[in-house]
């Protein structure tokens, strides 16, 4: 598989920050009461991820190891502050709905995690793609949770009322954890199935018995 395709798929699906790595939980649970807010938060994180990954990757050979974390945080905080100013100027409705969770993007572990694990060790283009892919993976995940919670909790879809029936359980914290847990379980189930069929396909191509292949996988 092409390197960039692998980076993209890892960020979007196989190392999805929300469902697989369970990072950025605070933002996920608090902002996913409505699908539109979730989508906005996801895109905001994507923009910050992209910019911070690019800058940190550019500076990776300059920043000494001893001060890498403070340096990363300065860069991330600057990007978030600029994003805040842009949102307040041009999309005030999103700015208002995000409230205190917009500045809290600074301490979102997805961003610091990718900076530390990827951007500080890879070239700029790779880091940019990783930032976009991870951000979009987060966006998709939080939007899915937002759609479910808004539909069941408020009877609407992206702000459009679709039914009168609603359960307020899904708009509060307990419901958020419930939906999050269910989504993680479903995601893991689907990915496991996908992984199994990939291994089976690979085994058929290599003409290696599936049982032996699975044993080799287990030993690995």
């Amino acid at each position: 598989m092409n390197k960039y395709a692998k980076i993209s798929l890892d960020g979007l699906i196989f190392n999805n920050p929300t469902f697989k790595l369970v990072l950025g939980t605070c933002a996920t649970l608090s902002m996913s009461t409505a699908a539109l807010n979730s989508f906005g938060m996801g895109l905001s994180v994507t923009v910050v991820l992209l910019l911070s990954n690019v800058i940190i990757s550019l500076l990776r050979k300059v920043i000494p190891n001893t001060v890498r974390i403070p340096a990363f945080i300065v860069v991330i905080a600057t990007m978030v502050t600029i994003l805040r100013m842009v949102l307040e100027k041009y999309i005030p409705s999103l700015y208002d709905s995000m409230g205190v969770f917009l500045p809290l993007i600074v301490v979102n572990c997805i961003i610091l995690g990718r900076a530390e694990a990827f951007a500080s060790k890879h070239p700029v283009l790779d880091s940019a793609i990783d930032g976009v892919a991870t951000g979009l993976g987060f966006t998709c995940a939080i939007t899915i949770i937002g759609i479910i919670r808004e539909f069941l909790g408020s009877g609407s879809f992206f702000g459009i009322k679709v039914m009168d029936f609603k359960m307020s359980f899904f708009t509060n914290s307990a419901g958020a954890f419930f939906v999050y847990g269910i989504c993680i379980a479903l995601f893991v189930l689907i990915i496991d199935q996908v992984e199994k069929s990939r291994r089976a396909k690979k085994a058929r191509l290599l003409r290696v018995p599936v049982v032996e292949q699975m044993s080799e996988d287990k030993e690995a």
């Binding site: 300059v62 920043i63 001060v67 300065v74 600057t78 600029i82 842009v86 307040e88």
Partner: peptide, 28 residues
């Protein structure tokens, strides 16, 4: 020493970041 280099780099990043924020604050 590495300590001085580390401090100098961190200071430089902070100053540049501060300058960027000042510019954007005026623009926006």
């Amino acid at each position: 020493s590495t300590a001085f280099r580390a401090l100098a780099v961190l200071l430089a990043i902070t100053i540049v970041a501060g300058g960027l924020l000042a510019i954007f604050n005026d623009l926006l």
